[in-house]
Computed example of a mutant assay.
Amino acid sequence: MPKLLPLFRAAAVTAALLVLQGCGPGGAPSYVIFGAYFPRWLLAGLIGIVAALVAHRLFVAKAWNGKLPLQLSVCCAIGMVVAVLFWTLATR
């Protein structure tokens, strides 16, 4: 067991560094809305939620909701795809 202690220590340091890899000196990417900083990931999440709601309303309006299995999963997937696309395009 004493021989494994340096290995565990190295693994703990590596895990700590991997957790901190997203931190940068420039700060988090954000927009200034009404004088307050609004993080882009939060904006991407809100856009994804709106996209999921729009997709649900479209399915109901076109009467596809009776034919579409797992509506919640499909609408959540649509919202996730839109949010990730927005995040990717907004952050280079």
Rank of each mutant, 00 (worst) to 15 (best):
V19M: 07
A52I: 09
G45E: 01
Y31D: 02
H56E: 14
P6E: 09
A36Y: 00
P39R: 09
L5W: 08
L53H: 11
C23A: 07
F59Y: 08
M1W: 13
L18F: 11
A28V: 15
T14E: 04
R40K: 15
M1N: 07
F8L: 10
L46S: 02
P2E: 10
L42K: 04
Y31I: 06
C23K: 00
H56S: 09
P29D: 01
Y37P: 01
I49R: 02
L4A: 14
A15Q: 12
L42I: 08
A36I: 13
G22A: 11
V32S: 00
V60S: 12
L18H: 00
V32R: 05
P69Q: 03
L58E: 07
M1L: 14
W64A: 11
A12V: 07
L46M: 04
K67V: 08
A36M: 07
F34V: 02
L5Y: 07
V13M: 09
N65E: 13
L46W: 05
F8Y: 08
V54T: 10
L5F: 14
A36Q: 01
A63V: 02
L68E: 13
L7I: 15
G45I: 03
Q21W: 06
Y37W: 03
G45K: 03
T14F: 06
G48P: 06
A11I: 03
P69N: 11
K67F: 07
A51P: 06
A15H: 04
H56K: 14
